[in-house]
């Protein structure tokens, strides 16, 4: 893609406004990093706790640029056949059968074996050509004429070896296929990698990326996010519920509620036609925020003081 010609990404402000318009409220840090990644043509490694909008960032970028989003979900045992490319074996087998029948016709008139082989050579490697190639996400992303957004999700879940496979793709935007040669990206895709930090990513991979850490948002930012995502909610209730979630995050919980949970909770409160938080309401709907029984118990024990704090913050 031509990096200068896209007005959506020409400045940090443009990115922020574009993201805002699509309902992704981002901090200055996020906008600056996306801008740099775009201008420098480097991948971004996005880290942070689950549910702060890492995957959403790539989706929004794809919507803003109207480029296709190509997603590669990583998991243990992911290999190049699933990430990069694969040969169409069935088709190859079928063609072999057809070829066998045609072989007699083709070789008619060849005087001896040497001539027959010579004639066969003229056909080249038909079975290992692009026609038999099944592109997987990484190769697909590089074949897009207009460029693409490539999202490599949860890279920490993939094996260590898979990271090495990514090195060539991410630094040179090319793939080596032994039977064909090197396939270069038609236009450089913009790459987002996300990680939940379940294991350390290798230095070699990190070095090729810009690093972006998305923490839990500040109070004001989260209020704006809820406002943009759940527009129907009352101002006072929104302030109160965001403050409540913030004080919940200070407790020692197994799974801290993230932005996505705040949004879910705001939606469910809207459905329940609530206009203020009270103990009963929170107790009944706590399941949307906290996902472990022991967390819910811990929060219920502190419910009174948590509600006081969140009421007091505003």
């Amino acid at each position: 893609m031509n990096r200068q010609a896209l007005p959506q990404f020409e400045s940090i402000e443009a990115i922020r406004h574009g993201f805002d318009a699509l309902g992704y409220i981002c901090s200055d840090r996020i906008a600056t990093t996306v801008f740099l990644a775009f201008q420098l043509g480097k991948p971004v490694l996005v880290e942070g706790p689950p549910g702060v909008g890492k995957t959403e960032l790539a989706k929004t970028a794809s919507a803003l640029l109207s480029l296709p989003l190509i997603r590669l979900q990583c998991y243990e045992g992911l290999d190049e056949a699933k990430a990069l490319y694969e040969w169409k074996y069935g088709k190859q087998l079928l063609y072999t059968q057809i070829l066998k029948e045609k072989l007699g016709d083709l070789l008619q008139g060849a005087d001896d074996l040497a001539a027959a082989v010579e004639r066969l050579h003229a056909f080249g490697d038909i079975f290992y050509s692009e026609a038999f190639l099944e592109p997987r996400p990484l190769l697909t992303a590089m074949q897009q004429e207009e460029g693409a957004i490539l999202l490599i999700d949860e890279i920490d879940k993939a094996d260590y070896e898979f990271e090495s496979l990514l090195l060539e793709v991410l630094s040179d935007f090319q793939v080596s296929i032994p039977e064909i040669g090197t396939v270069r990206a038609r236009s450089r895709p913009m790459v987002f990698l996300t990680s939940n930090n379940t294991r350390e990513i290798s230095d070699a991979l990190k070095r090729r990326c810009l690093h972006l850490y998305i923490p839990f948002p500040s109070l004001e930012l989260e209020e704006r996010i809820v406002q943009s995502r759940v527009p129907g909610i009352d101002d006072a209730l929104r302030r109160q519920l965001v403050a409540f979630v913030h004080s919940l995050r200070e407790l020692d919980l197994r799974k801290t509620p993230a932005i996505s949970e705040t949004i879910d909770w705001a939606r469910s409160l809207l459905l329940l036609h609530a206009d203020a938080l009270d103990a009963q309401l929170v107790r009944d709907s706590l399941g949307t925020l906290l996902k472990f029984e022991q967390d819910i118990e811990a929060a219920q024990a502190e419910l009174g003081s948590l509600l006081d704090i969140s009421a007091g913050r505003h």
Binding site: L36, R207, H211
Partner: peptide, 15 residues
């Protein structure tokens, strides 16, 4: 502030 963010993004690799 922006320069700070940009340099951080390109130089730091962990939080």
């Amino acid at each position: 502030d922006r320069l700070r963010t940009g340099l951080t993004a390109s130089l730091a690799k962990t939080s």
